[in-house]
Design a protein around this nucleic acid. Structure first.
Length: 679
RNA sequence: GGGCCCGUAGCUCAGCGGUUAGAGCAGGGGACUCAUAAUCCCUGGGUCGGGGGUUCGAAUCCCUCCGGGCCUACCA
């Protein structure tokens, strides 16, 4: 087989946050694939970069009082450190804020213009007059025009109503607290519909996408005309100004994927390669690894851009699912939102590399990091089964060395050498789960062999020295095969195996030829067992301070400013306005679930005597009905009844928190009586 | 409302038209002592989410329902 030329990318991590164990699913999946290809002898280049542009970076920089450039430089450094800690090896790790990227963006842009795909349309948006900037939906808050729920984002409210930010009642900019005004501005759009036929064909044929992804696109986007893509943002915007449209900047999703090319270009300059050979040459394969959340950009816009500008199209887009921890979404308060750097303080990266590999299917399925299983798998498979194989033979072999000729082994070496093809095929298809299972089977057979050959008995009899040497030669060669097959996942172990046997592991095919006549070095532990306490310590360290236990001796409170920032103060009101709201103490005398509703509980409140109110409260996410019965709450009692899908709500009960997972009901101190007004 | 993925042993998953449905871990019993309390042997455990259908034959294909996750739209 002649060597393939393969360019591989992972999605560009956003410069606004740190790498966490969810990101690592992707970078480890990709790194393993790249290492596999290199080990197979192919020409394979792995590029990535920080995604640096957009509003979120601007806001963070301002919040910290530093320039965007300083912020992204700092994050770049942190990202690189995290990746290298996990033995993720890029050939180039760049930034979308680079000269190369600006140049390539201009090139792609010119091609879109030339093809007549760019049109200008007025867009009317809310504008923050204080910050002199247009506001994306998530930076506007106000009262839902439908249910009058206050403090809702610009596109939808917690009760599930969707609307335009211009319909919000009393909108407030979360950037400045100012009242936004409506303004229009010309935006540039890409008429992607002109490429509909091409995209239909490209997504449905040629095996570029997993079947479920192709179906998703066909059913969801390609069944109707594709909408124009709004690709420009007015200043101020951290990004690249559009050369032929001063005052406008490319939307971050335009320049981010071009960052794949820009990073390649940087690499080409550094090592003296020809860029066109990698991006304009049918002989090159391009493989993107991404998460399912960004399917839309990579499978529609990106091929459209490449096609128009005459670059290589992706050979394959490998899409993976999300990470859950112990079956649930990662959570900051539970401590399962673990940063890469935190992980590395407590655990060996080899554990996670192995664990993810053992779980990853070729499909888009989510994968679960089950912490108990993590410990069990690492200890049982990696240490107990694989490394132990070396550990239990290398000590004997240190004195004997390897036999000059490979001894009879009942066909075990041959068998594992043959299985190499099936294992390689599994890696190629990103079916790491299957690859690992096959490898573990080989390791199992080797352990059985050792057990039965009992080198510890042979050692007792000097006359059996040669037999002992033969058994160790078999055992270590079977181990070496396993180490080769696991090299993409566990590069460190492959190196250690090379040192142990005085023969570095460089090629996959070395699994086909037994190693003989070599001295064996003193065995050193390759991977240590993991203890559940270490994992627990890591989880503890990842818990957000707000959830940590309060210190008994309350010293200075260190309350963060995030809540206030997330929801700035509303405009000042007069006392007269305040007293219009009649807040009352009320007792929950009945509570029941509204099964069809995602968030609602139906509460019956007593205001004392025979006064009853039925209130539908969106607190199901946190409170169960039985917890509430008997409790005192505070209720907005003179609110106009509101007809909702599941009945009429005659008031609201007071709670703080963002909504879904975070809700804190307010209740009065002991002694308060239902019906009392709150002044 | 539409779509996608998943539902197989206590747990995590494999099998995706054909012999009595598998693995690892966990459980039970035994062996061994070289090894990081590792290893080896034996063993219990499953209406393959429910129900229909296609087929000589279905965990595997089709329909439908239920449950979990996700994406996306619209109305109010």
């Amino acid at each position: 087989m002649s060597p393939r030329r393969i360019l591989v990318t992972s999605a560009l991590p956003y410069a606004n946050g740190h790498i966490h164990i969810g990101h690592l699913v992707e970078y480890l999946q990709t790194d393993i694939w790249v290492r596999f290809q290199k080990l197979r002898g192919h020409r394979c280049v792995y590029v990535c970069a920080d995604d640096t542009h957009g509003t979120a970076v601007m806001i963070s920089a301002e919040k910290e009082g530093i320039s965007e450039e300083d912020l992204i430089a700092r994050m770049h450094e942190a990202h690189v450190r995290d990746f290298s800690g996990f033995q993720i090896e890029f050939d180039n790790y760049g930034s979308t804020h680079s000269q190369e990227n600006r140049q390539l963006c201009a090139e792609v842009w010119a091609a879109l213009r030339r093809a007549g795909l760019v049109v200008e349309k007025e867009v009317t948006q809310l504008y923050d007059p204080e910050k002199k900037t247009f506001l994306a939906d998530r930076y506007v808050k106000g009262t839902c025009p439908f249910c009058k729920l206050p403090n809702q984002y610009g596109d939808s409210c917690d009760n599930g109503h969707t609307y335009s930010p211009t319909d919000l009642i009393d909108p407030v900019s979360t950037l400045s607290g100012a009242r936004p005004e409506l303004r229009s501005w010309p935006h540039l759009f890409v008429r992607i519909e002109k490429l509909h036929d091409f995209l239909q064909q490209w997504t449905q044929q040629g095996g570029h996408l997993q079947p479920e992804v192709a179906n998703y696109l066909a059913g969801h986007f390609l069944g109707e005309p594709l909408r124009d893509w709004d690709i420009s943002r007015p200043a101020p915007y951290f990004g690249f100004e559009i050369p032929d449209s001063p005052g406008n900047y490319w939307y971050v999703w335009f320049d981010a994927p071009i960052g794949y090319m820009a990073s390649t270009l940087q690499w080409c300059k550094r090592v003296g390669e020809d860029f066109d050979r990698w991006w304009r040459d049918d002989g090159t394969e391009i493989h993107h690894f991404i998460g399912k959340d960004i399917t839309y950009f990579h499978c529609l816009f990106w091929p459209a851009m490449l096609k128009t500008a005459g670059f290589n199209l992706p050979t394959k887009i490998h899409i993976h699912g999300f990470l859950t921890v112990d079956g649930q979404k990662m959570s900051k308060s539970k401590g399962t939102f673990v940063r890469a750097s935190t992980y590395l303080e407590y655990l060996d990266p080899a554990y996670l590399r192995y664990y993810y590999a053992s779980k990853l299917p070729p499909r888009v399925d989510d994968i679960d990091l089950n912490l108990d299983e993590f410990v069990a798998k690492v200890n049982a498979d990696l240490v107990g089964n694989v490394v132990n194989l070396a550990s239990r033979t290398a000590r004997f072999a240190h004195t004997t060395g390897l036999s000059p000729r490979y001894p009879e082994d009942g066909g075990l070496f041959e068998r594992a050498a043959r299985d190499g093809e099936a294992i390689a095929e599994a890696y190629e298809k990103c079916d790491y789960n299957r690859a690992i299972r096959l490898i573990l089977e080989a390791s199992d057979r080797a352990n059985q062999f050792i057990e039965q050959a009992a080198p510890w008995n042979l050692k007792k009899d000097r006359a059996k020295h040669d037999q002992l040497r033969d058994v160790c030669t078999v055992g270590l060669n079977l181990f070496r095969q396993v180490a080769i097959y696991l090299a993409p996942v566990l590069p460190r172990m492959a190196e250690q195996t090379g040192q142990l046997l005085n023969q570095p592991i460089c090629r996959w095919d070395e699994s086909k030829t037994p190693l003989v006549g070599k001295p064996v070095n003193r065995f050193q532990h390759m991977i240590t067992r993991v203890r559940a306490e270490q994992v627990q310590a890591m989880i503890q360290a990842s818990r957000e301070p707000e959830e940590a236990e309060r210190p008994a001796a309350a010293q200075a409170w260190d309350d963060g400013d995030e809540p206030l920032r997330a929801e700035p103060l509303a405009p000042t009101i007069s006392f007269d306005e305040f007293v219009k709201v009649d807040l009352r103490v009320a007792r929950v005398i009945a509570a029941e679930d509204v099964p069809e509703a995602r968030k609602l509980l139906k509460l019956t409140l007593s205001l004392g005597g025979s006064s009853r109110r039925t209130v539908l409260a969106g607190i199901k996410g946190v409170y169960r009905p039985e917890q509430l019965v008997g409790r005192l709450v505070i209720c907005a009692a003179n609110l106009a009844p509101r007809k909702m899908k599941f009945g009429t709500s005659e008031g609201m009960i007071l709670a703080s928190g963002s909504g879904d997972e975070e809700i804190y009901l307010l209740y009065p101190d002991k002694g308060a009586k239902p019906g009392q007004r709150v002044h």
